[in-house]
């Protein structure tokens, strides 16, 4: 029993020390702290031309401006959810059933911004779809993580 307790304590202490040390030197380390850092939104200047290997996070205002200048808005939720209400002009690509949307994805323009969304935190389907589109070679992809809930809270139009 004594040995077990001693071993447990050793393992846990070593994990603590190594974990905190490795995290401190890792560029992908997490900042230990009490406040959740705000997710960084894309700079407006990035959201024009160019070709990017990472999807951008955008906020509601950015989404509206991008839509006005021709961006394609993509709803990553299920068709049932989509029919029940979505952002005006959005097309539906259900992230859970991508194989059914091969045709839709092929028709997406490569010279325009694609902005994906889901309901909002913690749903990450919009972000996952955005990453998928980037991996398929689309050069300008963004996601609106605050999602439809944020859109509705702002009193903006939802269409069926």
């Amino acid at each position: 029993m004594k040995t077990l307790v001693r071993d447990l304590a050793q393992i846990i202490i070593i994990a603590f020390v190594l974990g905190l040390a490795a995290n401190a030197v890792n560029p992908r380390g997490v900042k230990i702290g009490f406040s959740r850092p705000p997710r960084a939104f894309a700079a407006d200047s990035s959201l024009t031309g160019g070709s990017f290997k990472e999807p951008f996070l955008v906020n509601r205002e950015q989404l509206r401006r991008m839509a006005e200048s021709g961006a394609v808005i993509i709803d990553a939720r299920s068709p049932e959810e989509f029919v029940a209400g979505h952002i005006p002009g959005a097309v539906n690509i259900h992230f859970e059933a991508l194989h059914e949307y091969v045709g839709v994805m092929e028709k997406l323009p490569r010279d325009r911004w694609l902005v994906c969304y889901c309901d909002g935190p913690p749903c990450d389907k919009g972000e996952m779809l955005a990453r998928e589109l980037v991996s398929q070679g689309f050069p300008r992809v963004a996601y609106y993580y605050e999602g439809l809930n944020d859109w509705k809270r702002a009193g903006l139009e939802v269409v069926r």
Partner: peptide
């Protein structure tokens, strides 16, 4: 995303749990 832990414990867990698994 699990929305179970206060953020401080989330960050601590993220740093330490993988090392516990590894050891």
């Amino acid at each position: 995303n699990y929305r179970l832990l206060p953020y401080f414990l989330t960050t601590l867990t993220a740093a330490i749990l993988p090392w516990l698994e590894l050891i």
